[in-house]
Amino acid sequence: MPKWSMVIDLDKCVACQGCSIACRMENNTPVVSPAESALGRLMLWNDVFPLQAEEHGAIASAQAKFLTRPCMHCEDPPCVKVCPVEATYQDEEGIVRQNYARCIGCRFCTVACPYGVRYFNWYAPAWDEGLERHLNPDRVSGDGDLEGPAIRPKGVVEKCTYCIHRLHKARERAAAEEREFRPDEYVPACVQTCTGKARFFGDLDDPNSTVSQLAQSRRAFRLLEEAGTHPKTIYLHEG
């Protein structure tokens, strides 16, 4: 059973925010008005932040630094622990899932996630004129289950799912073609689109996969390692 993981090489990231846009189109994240956005209600499952320049002695580093941030898909996720109804949970392949059909909107997970990657639907989702014709029809749904790009009702929490619907589709394709599913048949939209080819995706349990090789790199680090969440989204330092 694969354990999905993403590696982001900050050396290669050009901060174009292509991943953010690809994610938005792929996952139908609602568009919010500038006024709402100023309130802090912008939704970007995968956000790109400018980082503060570090000071070395008297000299501030001239180089601008950026950080792109999807969900960390923590191995020990604080968000999952606190959910009272198991609307967010970790599946056997390590993906932290979010079920819109069950979430009661208590927002406990949003305050518990130390990375701020969870977004709440303050209003019913809306799209600008024309955009709603380009919504991704993919969804993961079942009995009492609604996930992925499916249109969320208002009042529930959503977040990066490593494009769980792509995994489902890849599996279904393999099944239809009556062959075994290979872990390299599936990547999230941000990985596929990344301009600088800075993102890698794959099975962390496979010693030959790119991600597990890169995770060995001396440049590898994880965000807030001290928080004990054991992220599976791994970064490679610049330089």
Binding site: I104, C106, F108, F120
Partner: peptide, 24 residues
Amino acid sequence: IIIDMGRPERLLNMIIYGRFQSPL
């Protein structure tokens, strides 16, 4: 608490799917 919930009509989920890991 109910006023604070995004989907108060799903309150019963707390009983149906309640998980005791959650301090809530």
